[in-house]
């Protein structure tokens, strides 16, 4: 073994970190998020343990729904990354393809991925834990639809950032969605969060969906208020994020970044 070859490789990777804020941030990102998520879960369990009817019901349902959001986001971002890795973006954007058509195609890919993953997860939950995701009832449909749209919002936002900052920002494709996890209240209710964070979580459509899911499972009541908030917020955020995507694309064309995004 030659030390100089090992150090050459180490330097090759250190050079990457020297000028890359996204890569440096990623080192601290996961430990920080783990601490936040599991900290709040611990608080929740410590405070409400006697009242919880069954951990499995809550956690498996939340996990499956969270994965739907995650896959919906991945469906958008990974589809863009596939084009970037294949150095195919120039072929696409020098064709009559409109940015809106590109977005719709990525959303269609996202729906296919979500459908496949949901089926697999629902079957696995049933087989391994005798957990039937359909116990959420008819509300499952609107919950899933809204989570998919929230996933698209995060996906389009992340794609815009990768388009703007290039391949070095591609780690965001996997990490960005987890920035939203603490304020989505996936595994704990909104009230567990500190007051200042509750305000931020309130404008996140996913938080209303998970609140609605818990309401259905604990009280069986129709979560109409939560759903209305989720639909309204999703509508506003979709318009905002598509506008942001168009703005970023115009900026990238002006700066010549669209043809250099793979570098």
């Amino acid at each position: 073994m030659k030390l100089h070859r090992v150090t050459a490789l180490i330097f090759r990777h250190l050079y990457l970190y020297r000028r890359s804020l996204p890569r440096i941030m990623e080192i601290f990102y996961w430990p920080f998020l783990d601490l936040v998520i599991w900290g709040f879960i611990t608080l929740y369990l410590a405070r409400y343990q006697p009242q919880l009817p069954g951990f499995v019901t809550f956690f498996l349902g939340a996990l499956i729904l969270w994965d739907i959001l995650f896959r919906a986001q991945q469906g958008i971002t990974i589809t863009f990354l596939e084009e970037l890795w294949a150095r195919n973006l120039m072929n696409l954007f020098a064709s009559p393809l409109k940015p809106s058509e590109f977005l719709v195609a990525t959303m269609a890919m996202s729906i296919m991925k979500v459908t496949a993953v949901s089926i697999v997860m629902a079957v696995c939950a049933l087989v391994f834990y005798s957990y039937n995701v359909l116990m959420i009832g008819l509300w499952l449909g609107p919950f899933v639809l809204n989570l998919v749209v929230t996933g698209w919002i995060i996906g389009v936002f992340t794609t815009s950032l990768i388009m703007r900052f290039g391949q070095e920002a591609e780690v965001l494709a996997w990490s960005m969605v987890f920035l939203f996890q603490p304020i989505s209240c996936v595994f704990y209710p909104l009230e567990v969060l500190p007051a200042w964070l509750q305000g931020i979580a309130w404008v996140n459509p996913a938080a209303h969906i998970f609140e609605g899911m818990r309401a259905v499972l604990t009280t069986g009541q129709a979560p109409l208020g939560d759903l209305a908030w989720a639909v309204g917020l999703n509508g506003v955020l979709v318009i905002g994020v598509v506008g942001w995507f168009y703005r970023t694309m115009a900026y990238c064309k002006d700066q010549g970044l669209l043809v250099r995004v793979g570098e």
Binding site: E83, R87, M90, N91, A94, S95, P96
Partner: peptide
């Protein structure tokens, strides 16, 4: 752009697709 096309040595086509599949995608795109 419907009536224009280009070719560059420095641009690639999706590597995991066959030649025919790549051409088919382009045909659909236009």
């Amino acid at each position: 752009l419907q009536q224009v096309n280009f070719s560059s040595t420095y641009i690639s086509m999706p590597q995991a697709l066959t030649v025919e599949e790549n051409l088919w995608v382009v045909a659909r795109l236009y």
